[in-house]
Structure formats: C-alpha cells, structure tokens
Design a protein around this nucleic acid. Structure first.
Lengths: 340, 340
DNA sequence: CTGAAAGCGCTAACAG
DNA sequence: CTGTTAGCGCTTTCAG
C-alpha cells in the first residue's frame, strides 16, 4: 500500500474537468438541477477516472449531521444480535450505518460508551442494555440525543420505548400453564431489579391471582446475577441445578430467559425427570434452536428482529423530529411446543 | 428536546474564558505543554460549565483519520457475534469504535457495503464474510483500505488473514475418529466453493489417506447452500433428515458447522439412533450450548473471540503501518465430549 | 505562554 | 447554467 496515498477531492475533479468545485459538488449531488449534459458527463468522467469517493467527514461537518446511529448492547447473546440485524436492515435501507457498543455488564465501560456516543457524532442511540441507569440516560437526553430503549418499559419524556407487554404476556403464560393443569408453577428469573423481569413477575402473580391460586414466595427462583448472559453458563448450570434440587415439588417452570430452558433440559434429564410430564417448561424468548430441542421448548415469542427494525424506524423519525417519541408494545404470542 | 439546540464549540469556550480558540484547543488536548495553571483551570472550567463535548467530525476532517473500523459479517450467527465482541473489546480499549455491516448473503448488499465503507471514512475493515469476492477485495485494496480477513485462508498481498489451520484440524479430527474405531465417517459440509470448507474437506481426505482408508465419494454430504446460516433451520433440518436417512451406513459424522450437530441430535433421536454408539458426531466450532446438549457435542474449537480480538489488533497495526500485513493461524484444539 | 491565520473537503447562498 | 465566497469545528504552524 502506498503510504502517501491521497484521496482525490472535488477540487481535483474541478481542476481536471475545468469547472469549479461548486459545480462539481452540484453535479455529484444532483443539486441545482440545471447544468448541461456535457458538463455533467465531463465531471462524472473525471470523478470515475480519479476513482473519486466523497469524504463524508467533510460533508457531515458541514451539515452537522452524520449517518451513524449507535446500538448499545450488554452482551453477545443471540437475542441481541437478532435485534442488531433488525436495526441494521432498516438503517442501511435508509442510508445509515450502525456502530455497536458492547458494554458487557461493566458499568465503567457503559459510562465510557455514553461519553463516546456524545463525541462521536452519532445522531441517535438504540439501547437494549438493562444496565443503563437514569443518570446516564439523562446525560444523553440533555445532549439532545434521540434515544430508543428496547425491552425496558421505562417511561421517560423524550425517550422512546419498544418492547412486548411483559406483564400481560407473563399473565397469559401463567394462565395457560394453570389451565393446562399445572398446579405448582415456579417463576425462574434474574434479579427483579431489572424492569422487564419485574414486569414478568407481576404478570406471573396476576396469573395466579386470576386463577385463585395462592402465591408462594418459595416458588420464586432467583438467580442473583445475569450469569447466563455473561457467558458464564457453567455457573448458571451449577446454580440452576441447586435450585431445581430444592424445588422438586414444582410441576412447571416459567422462565424469563431463552437460555435457561436448555440448561434445565439437561439438568432434569440428569435427575431422570421427564419434560413435560414431571416438569413442564415455558420460557420467555427463544433461541434459534429452541424448537429443535428434545422436547422442543414452548415459548413466549419476543420478536427481536422486529424490535430492532421498529426501533431504528422510530429513532430515525426522532432524528427528523426532535419532539417525536413513542412507547410501543409489539405483538407477542405464546408458541406451544413439546415442553408444556 | 430543543430543536434549536446547538452544541458548544471551542469558540464558545474561548469567548467565555477570554482566550483564543487555539489556546483552548491546546489545553483541551494537552498539547504545547506550556500554559499557566490559571489559564488551564479557567478553560477547563468553562468547558465543564458549557458541557462541552468535542466534535470529532471536525477533528477527523482536520486529521484525515477517523476512529471507526468496520466489521463485515454475513449473518447473525452466534459465531460472528463472538468475533464482533473480540473486535469490539480491542477497539474500544484503543479508542476506536466498530461499525457493523451485515450483508446477509446478499451480493448486492455486499457491494453496497463495500462502497459505503470507502466513503464512510472507516479506517480499516475486518471481514468475516465468506461471500466477498476478489473484485471487491481489490477495490478496497486499491483504495488503500487496510483489510483483515477472518477464517478465509485466502492469500493476498497487503491483506491480513486470521483463522485456524482448517486443513490440519480436519486431519486431526478425522484421525481421532478413526483411531477411536469409527470406520465409516461422513463429511458434512456446505458448498466446497467456500475456502474454509474446502480446506476442511482436504484435511478429512488427508486423515483417511493417512490411515489407509479409501475415500468414498458418497460419504461427502453436501448441503447445497448455507441454509443454517441464513436462519433457515427448518430447511436445513429437512435436508439433513433426507441425507441421514440415505446414509445410515455411516458410524460417524464430521460436521463443518456448530449448528448442524444440534439438528443431527434431534434427527437421530427421531430415528431411534443413539449418539455416539450408533452414530458419532464431531463438529467444527461450537455454540455456547453445545456442551449442554445430550450428549454434549465434541468439537474442534474455533477461538472466535480471540480471532476478533487479534484481527482488531492486526488491523490497527496496519492502519499505523500500511506496509504491515500478517497471515496468522490461531491455535485450535479438539474437545472431546459425549458425542464421540 | 498565547494569538492570528490557514486549511482539512464539502455545501450552499449569492451573484452573475 | 456556473463561479465566488464563506464557513462547518478543529488542529497546527508561525509569530510574538
């Protein structure tokens, strides 16, 4: 590679084609509408010969606007990649690019990311991280940064949200389990300080109450951290094994994450318990492979791709219209498979 | 949000603190070394009060260099997300951000992405897509864009590569299977036009030859497209079922993808075949859940995170030194679990 | 130790 | 239909 390689600019095109750089700019951007075909051709030719590629930095500086949006995700779980794909598809289609920040549940990193967002001239942010706190959100908001939250159900002025109705779906799931004859249903979750988990917990209780079943505190099975999202599956497996052994009286489990059922299947198999006859499993969210497990795992479908796609759509609207914001529930459904 | 919101610039700081914007720039960047503490303090204070955030577009335009690198991936398979995490970690640590382009096996999109890369002032690209063709690579190269290829083993001048030694690992895997007593080993793959698959195929044949086993054409089980990477698991499942039914004589399968074994487990289970006694499975690459399957799946480990991390490291070196490039094999190992 | 001035590559108002 | 000019926000000589 040539160290002294210098990209051609519109000035080079101007020099070669014999026009001013303003005219070149016009032709290249199809602005102004009126210039002779000859001019157009000359300029376009010169551009092609020079292998001209516009310098977007200059354009963005001038226009005070970039084509970059950011996606803030806590980890590399497939759920978040699927969201990213949705975001990406909509963004690219509209001429935008997506910069990804993975904070990996590190509050320090998360803070650095927020600062980086502000100075990187990103024009908007989609956040699927559960970790972002109020303070950081406010900081972004103060800096006039359009924000879309995914799966947080967190109401803020000027901030959009997109998620499923977690409480309602948890209610439906619980109700379904009860109607299917399960009497002693466990709620398997991460820490309830995370809003989406809490909503699901509320829905679970709603479901019990609706069916006049007494809520039993000990049926709430809490993993004290998000191990399964932190790539710490062996720790998750270990804790889950303990939990199950202590709760053999349950006949069904409602899980808040798609990862947990896969481990559960293994654990129950080791304990010689059959799914669903000894223990049914119904889970929020699914992995691509969930339906190829033995048995296939019943799930409350979270439309992750659509969430990303819609989030990007809303974000770009917010960019155009700073007073726009939306709080949206995407439709969700329960898909019954072999595990219930 | 305030529609007329205007970000403060160094000029604002200059005005308020009473210095020139040049001095402000120096202080903010710790350049020039010599200014009174009083000056420094005044300027820093003004910056803080104004909630000043530097405009990187301007900086980059001036410096003719950005802090954005791009990652080009074909799809949202976990393998690629893990690579992305590696890239991201190294990049962030060094002050860079990562822009992601998912081409989704669409040649048109791939082309658009390449063009976008060139004009977006990305300073380097990491490509894990199998789809990029020679022509596009050359186009990037001509534009002086540092490139690191992941898992392609494709030799080019000025282009770096990072992968495992696919041929060698396939040889070892095949040899291991034979030494374990399997006699009739199938090679399960996508189209062999993809270089990494081809290398593995060669390694498979090497392994047979080394053990004086005759290569049997019909033991090469080819899926005619990358369905499993295209989110088309049901199609994959269908084709795989047919393939297996036609090849019940096999006693082991060497798979080139981590997704396939999971489906195989299901299919074999349906056919009442036990793994590994009726059919062993050994697979290139693994998913987070591979070891929690029943039985756990033996695998040739591809260090995806490290590949990403190293790729980013090499890329940033290439950015600093345009004549630098490397062809690296990362160490890999075979992890024997229950499926063999 | 600090200020003035130029310029990165581009767009757009204004003038013709 | 086209050219001149100014300026986006920043860094960096060059003077002083």
């Amino acid at each position: 590679m040539n160290k002294d390689f210098k990209k051609p600019t519109i000035k080079d095109i101007a020099r070669i084609s014999g026009f001013s750089h303003a005219t070149v700019s016009r032709v290249l951007n199809n602005k102004g509408m009126f210039y002779s075909n000859e001019t157009k051709e000359k300029i376009l030719n010169a551009a092609k010969n020079l292998k001209y590629v516009p310098n977007k930095m200059a354009k963005y500086l001038k226009e005070n606007k970039t084509n970059l949006i950011a996606y803030l995700t806590p980890t590399d779980h497939p759920f978040y990649f699927s969201i990213l794909r949705g975001i990406n598809d909509y963004a690219i289609k509209n001429g935008y690019n997506v910069s990804v920040l993975i904070s990996y549940y590190d509050e320090e990193k998360e803070k650095i990311n927020i600062d980086s967002l502000l100075s990187n001239q990103v024009i908007g942010v989609i956040i699927s991280s559960m970790l972002i706190n109020e303070e950081q959100l406010i900081k972004l908001n103060e800096n006039n940064m359009p924000i879309v939250l995914i799966d947080r159900e967190d109401k803020h002025e000027n901030i959009s949200n997109i998620s499923i109705n977690n409480r309602e779906m948890a209610f439906k799931a619980t109700d379904y389990l009860i109607k299917s004859g399960y009497k002693n249903i466990g709620f398997l979750s991460g820490p309830l300080k995370y809003l989406n988990f809490l909503k699901r917990f509320q829905g679970y209780k709603d479901g019990l109450e609706y069916n006049s079943i007494k809520f039993t505190e000990s049926n709430v099975l809490i993993l004290d951290d998000l191990y399964w999202l932190k790539d710490n599956l062996s720790k998750t497996y270990e804790l889950l094994t303990e939990i199950i052994k202590k709760n053999m009286n349950l006949d069904a489990i409602l899980s808040i994450s798609s990862s947990l059922p896969i481990l559960l299947l293994k654990i129950l198999n080791n304990l010689n318990l059959k799914v669903p006859s000894d223990m049914a499993i119904l889970s929020f969210s699914e992995l691509p492979f969930s339906k190829y497990m033995t048995p296939p795992i019943s799930a409350v479908i979270e439309p992750s791709y659509d969430m990303g796609y819609e989030a990007a759509k809303i974000l770009l609207k917010m960019v155009d219209n700073r007073s726009y914001s939306k709080f949206i529930y995407l439709p969700s459904k329960i898909e019954i498979r072999g595990s219930t």
